[in-house]
Nucleic acid binder design. Structure first.
Lengths: 115, 115
DNA sequence: ATAGAACAATACGCCTCCGAAACGAATTCC
DNA sequence: GGAATTCGTTTCGGAGGCGTATTGTTCTAT
């Protein structure tokens, strides 16, 4: 349970996104970030179709986001051997580090918030 | 002062971005979101040059972001009468509501976090 | 075996975005 | 008043994203 005022919450969000921009982190869109966090926070397996259904977007949106984030190493893809129509999204070390850094930055910013 | 564990912070971030995607909010990039929050959280005036310097990006990045977010009504621009080379970014009702909704969503998600 | 369904990827035309460079307008400096 | 500076925008070629529709592959049902 976390106590928050809206202005504090917004400042936290601003500080985080600001730090991401200043530090030259990849300029992810809300969709891309959501996909990334879903993959790293929710239990696998994650498929293109499953992600599309969960986020309420079309499958090409997922495919393209996986293309882009895969290109910069934040995740990878593997064909599902049980059903070779499926593609399973896999976590990578780089992606895990990126998400972890995000969490640490959030923590650090939250600690600086005035009560 | 806010108590946080990294996993909680990440879940909060995920829940927020997830809600934005599901609700069909504009798919803002980290840069765009940072610009928007800077305009609405920090005291005016905000100029193209000032925002570019603060975020560490080039001026065309700011111009384009203002183009896009202005097109959907989240902000507007006005020529500075004192020095007509400058452009002053202005808040809009729609933008203020959008940012306010963001804060409310963050609050609501934070309340649901397990201790 | 073959028709149908399900899956991810691709093609299409259009729009946004990128960094670097050039631009026009406004101001400041001598 | 003329040159230099400052400001925001625009241009350029190239890259990525969009939604819709289609493709190729794989599985399922008959």
């Amino acid at each position: 349970m976390v106590e928050f005022r809206p202005s504090q919450a917004l400042k936290l969000l601003h500080d985080l996104s600001f730090a991401m921009v200043r530090d030259g982190e990849p300029d992810l869109s809300a969709r891309q970030l959501t996909i990334l966090l879903t993959i790293y926070l929710e239990p696998p397996p994650h498929t293109v179709r499953g992600l599309a259904a969960k986020l309420g977007v079309t499958k090409p949106v997922i495919t393209r986001a996986l293309d882009t984030m895969g290109r910069i190493g934040l995740l990878s893809r593997r064909r599902d051997d049980a059903d070779r129509r499926n593609v399973v999204v896999q976590r990578t070390v780089k992606g895990a580090l990126f998400v972890e850094r995000l969490g640490d930055m959030l923590m650090a910013k939250a600690k600086d918030l005035p009560l």
